[in-house]
Simulated assay, not measured.
Amino acid sequence: MGRRRGSFGWGRVIGCLGPVLLAACGPAEEVRAPEPRPVRTVTVTKRETGDTVALTGRIAAQDVAALGFRTAGRVMERPVNVGDRVTAGQTIARLEPQNETNAVRSAQADRAAAQAAVTQATNHFERQETLLAQGWTTRALFDQAKKERDTAQARLDSAEAQLKTADDLLGFTVLKADAPGIVTTVGAEPGEVVQAGQTIVRLARQGGRDAVFEVPAQVLRTAPPDAVIAVSLTDDPAVTATGRVREVAPEADPVTRTFEVKVGLDAPPEAMRLGATVTGRLRLDAQAVIEIPASALTRADQAPAVWIVDPRSATVALRNVQVVRFDPAKVAVAGGLDVGEVVVTAGVQALHPGQKVRLLGARP
Rank of each mutant, 00 (worst) to 15 (best):
T137A: 12
A332D: 08
V245F: 04
R111T: 05
A54H: 12
I308E: 04
V194M: 04
R209E: 12
P254E: 12
T138K: 09
T234H: 12
V53C: 09
D226R: 13
T345G: 06
G197S: 03
I92G: 04
H124L: 15
T345S: 12
D51F: 11
V343M: 05
R257H: 15
A109H: 09
R358K: 13
D178S: 14
M1E: 14
K147Q: 14
P328M: 06
L274W: 05
D84C: 08
R40H: 04
A72T: 05
P311V: 00
K164R: 14
L318G: 06
Q144S: 10
Q144E: 14
R78T: 01
L284C: 00
G89H: 00
L163H: 11
R244A: 10
V331Q: 06
V64E: 08
D235L: 10
A60P: 02
R58S: 08
T242K: 12
Q90C: 01
V309D: 00
V194F: 06
L132N: 11
R105W: 10
R4A: 01
G340V: 06
R139F: 11
A305P: 01
P19N: 10
T185Y: 15
A154T: 05
L351K: 04
L282M: 12
G275A: 00
K176C: 00
E192F: 15
E100L: 12
I308R: 01
A103W: 02
R283P: 00
G361Y: 02
D167V: 01
A346E: 11
V323F: 09
R58P: 00
V82N: 07
A286S: 12
V331Y: 01
E30A: 02
V39W: 07
C25H: 08
T234D: 13
V201Q: 00
E148F: 09
K147L: 13
Q90E: 02
A317C: 08
R37D: 04
V219E: 09
P269H: 12
L21R: 10
T173I: 03
V201I: 10
P353G: 04
S158W: 15
T87C: 07
A23I: 09
L337G: 05
E291L: 09
A276H: 13
E126G: 06
V186P: 01
T137K: 14
A204V: 02
S158I: 07
V104M: 08
P304M: 08
V20H: 07
G15V: 14
A276W: 11
E77V: 15
V357S: 06
A334D: 03
V42I: 07
A154G: 07
A305K: 03
A334C: 03
A332G: 07
N320L: 01
R246K: 15
I292T: 07
K146T: 02
R58V: 07
V357Q: 02
E341A: 03
E29T: 15
G50T: 04
V333E: 00
